[in-house]
Write a protein that binds this DNA or RNA. Structure first.
Length: 468
RNA sequence: CGGGAAGUGGCGCAGCUUGGCAGCGCGCAGCGUUCGGGACGCUGAGGCCGCGGGUUCGAAUCCCGCCUUCCCGACCA
């Protein structure tokens, strides 16, 4: 039986997904359904994402830490809305060491509770604030309907948890993460344009006062939430006793945020940029930016290819040499295309006789002969061009499939093929009806695209769509 | 849990209506010819036909029961 695959942009998407799969598949591990296996190429993409995100998170002042996988069930119950939101999807461990546990523990679905137990101990004074923590970890949510990368039972992510002295400071930090970490990463590194907005009450994180989101459009017109940042108010601080003494000597509860992005981003990359020939990986995230394909090892081609690889590596590019000349050229060319390597340089005796190599762009398929002496320079410049081109294509696609409408019915209609922008005042009472038709409000924005600080602000625009 | 499909070598499928040696494509192994866009030929390995029962001389195929998976929905980074 075929495993589930990412929903295709093109009919043959599942075929190349099978071939390369960005090297991921659902794990067949008995009663634990919907976990994923990430093969090395897919993981290499995730590692680069981690590095880029981690740099930005640290620039925002947060530091990495690590907390337990197992959380006592009672911790979850301390915040009423939180436990209600997560109960259905918890994996509960009842036995350990051959004995029944006195209290069951859950495998973390997210770590607000366990981390706040520690933050409560670590925070005494306003001088301890802000406390800015981040954790790279795996979490488990027993999802009803798993999809590779997009919604797996176990997934890898980054979760940030912070405590601040004031509401304003917490709110500003939640927005800062959303903008300077998530939006910047999605746009500048992944080349995926995102809507930055606020979730409706209905779509808000369990236990949060406000949830902010970045939403992208995939190749098939459906929306994907790529990251979230929550303003938690004092909800968890009260539940976990995170109190601090202010500079005037009074005691107050801390104001908190939490925020995260996951391996879902790999799915976003695949579905946001993939085409009929396979993956298209933006140069800034590509594990291999340039592949030098040795067509055949005759007339000094092998030496020329090796020298070119060395030159490219010397420029700091991630480059790989494909000298498997016993495998047919066509097969190798297709393989690199499936993997989405942005630039391919073909080195063979025929071109070389004229002092040339062939440079091929993955995004456009363009092939041009270039002098071998200029090849490294050309390749480096092409990477910048490709990075921009992928972002531009994704943006044009999204804009072309976004409709401005002025009624709920029109919005539902337009959401069948893309995004619909509609005044929030028109939909707010019909959100449930839309949801029953498989269409949800992805986010709320101000008319100028800015982030609303309340869903009651006048003149807000709702973007509605079908979503993963 | 509702609605719809499907379970047959590693993967994708045909065969079932009308019971009669378990097949095809891809992949895999060996040899040869190829190899500037997924090469070709020959040889070969690999099967509890989802599970259990029934009908029959004989069941992948017909009947009964069960299990599992996938798709659409509720949940969701």
């Amino acid at each position: 039986m075929a495993r589930s695959v990412l929903t295709p942009r093109a009919e043959n998407f599942p075929q190349w997904y099978q071939d390369v799969v960005a090297k991921a598949e659902m794990a067949d591990n008995g009663p634990v359904r919907g976990t994923m296996v990430i093969r090395p190429y897919g993981y290499a993409i995730w590692e680069r994402m981690q590095r880029e995100l981690d740099d930005r998170i640290k620039a925002a002042g947060a530091r990495n830490a690590y907390f337990p996988l197992f959380i006592p069930e009672s911790y979850l119950r301390r915040e009423a809305e939180h436990v209600e939101g997560f109960s259905p999807e918890l994996a509960v461990v009842t036995h350990g060491g051959g004995k029944q546990l006195e209290e069951p523990v859950v495998v973390r679905p997210t770590s607000e509770t366990i981390i706040n137990v520690f933050i409560a101990k670590w925070v005494q004074s306003h001088r301890d604030l802000p406390m800015l923590l981040n954790q790279w970890a795996n979490v488990v949510r027993w999802e009803l309907r798993p999809r590779v990368f997009l919604r797996t039972t176990e997934f890898l992510w980054q979760e940030g948890h912070t405590a601040h002295a004031t509401r304003a400071e917490a709110r500003a930090y939640a927005v800062r993460i959303l903008r300077q970490v998530y939006e910047d990463f999605a746009v500048e590194v992944l080349g995926l344009p995102v809507l930055v907005g606020r979730k409706t009450e209905r779509e808000r994180f369990a236990g949060a006062e406000a949830t902010f989101t970045i939403e992208a459009m995939m190749g098939d017109g459906k929306a994907l939430q790529m990251g979230t940042s929550h303003e938690l108010g004092q909800n968890f601080a009260r539940a976990f006793g995170i109190e601090f003494q202010t500079d005037t000597g009074t005691n107050e509860y801390a104001w908190q945020t939490s925020w995260g992005v996951s391996t879902r981003l790999v799915g976003a990359l695949i579905m946001g940029h993939g085409d009929d020939a396979g993956l298209r990986v933006p140069p800034r995230i590509a594990p291999v930016q340039v592949v030098v394909v040795l067509v055949k090892a005759a007339d000094g081609a092998g030496e020329a290819a090796a020298a070119l690889v060395a030159e490219l590596a010397g420029r700091g590019l991630r480059v790989e040499l494909d000298e498997r000349v016993d495998t047919s050229f066509g097969r190798r060319a297709v393989e690199w295309e499936l993997k989405g390597v942005p630039v391919r340089i073909e080195v063979g005796p025929r071109d070389l006789a004229a002092g040339n190599v062939t440079l091929v762009r993955r995004d456009s398929g363009d092939k041009v002969p270039v002098p071998i002496t200029a090849a490294a320079q050309e390749a480096a410049e092409s990477l910048d061009v490709i990075q921009a081109a992928l972002h531009r294509q994704a943006t044009e696609m999204r804009d072309a499939r976004t409709a401005e409408v002025s009624s709920v019915d029109e919005a539902q209609q337009a959401a069948q093929t893309g995004f619909a922008r509609v005044p929030w005042d028109l939909v707010r009472d019909d959100e449930v009806r839309l949801a029953q038709a498989g269409v949800t409000v992805r986010c709320l924005q101000r008319a100028d695209g800015d982030l609303p600080m309340s869903s009651d602000e006048p003149g807000l625009v709702a973007t509605v769509a079908k979503a993963y």
